[in-house]
Amino acid sequence: MIGAGGSPLRYLEFGDIVIYFSPYTLALFLLALVFTVLVIASKPERQLDIAFGADAFTTKDIGLSEMRFRRFMAIACGLASMGAMVTGDVFDFCLFTSLVGICNVGIVAAVKSRHVQGAAFQYGLVALAGTVPLFGGAAIVAATTGTLSLIELSSTLLPAVPLVVKGFLVLGVMGEGMAPFYAAKAEMFRAPGAPYVIMCSLSSLLIFLRVIEVVLQM
């Protein structure tokens, strides 16, 4: 098959779920891999509060257990986005995407700041509501075409997937990752700890890039 992201270079079979590496998915996979390695290797940065009008600043003190928990969540988020980049099954893609969503919530939920927690809660609600169009869309794909495999879906023999169902999938991914609405994520970025918070936006960018390929394939 020649999909939207070029013809696959390599397949990895897990029963009915076949993972494939096409030039497009491979590039996204490597990006996620490099960033996950960076998160594992790098030391967290401290947030500085600069006092206006005076030559003074304070460093926010963050507990070790909080940092360890957030690093764990960031690594899990990196692994989840790696999975979402290469999976070749619509439902499996939806599951990986919701995993990315809950990991994003976890990265910021551990922060002891009321403002950040409020943002994390609202964002978590959207991520949870996002699973409805996501799983619903995948289920309608299965009913209209009789398959969930992207490799089968790229063949022209199957009935076409309705346009609104593709919209469901894209809307669901937008809910999980907030991909085009970075303004909405600004509150979450108040959370200290440089490499971990950036994992949130990178993972949502990656899943948004991938869902475009998924939708074009159908």
Binding site: F14, G15, I17, T87, D89, F91, D92, L95, F96, L99
Partner: peptide, 10 residues
């Protein structure tokens, strides 16, 4: 078995 990866992610 056939869709085991789904269950692992779940």
């Amino acid at each position: 078995n056939t869709r085991g990866l789904d269950t692992v992610v779940e």
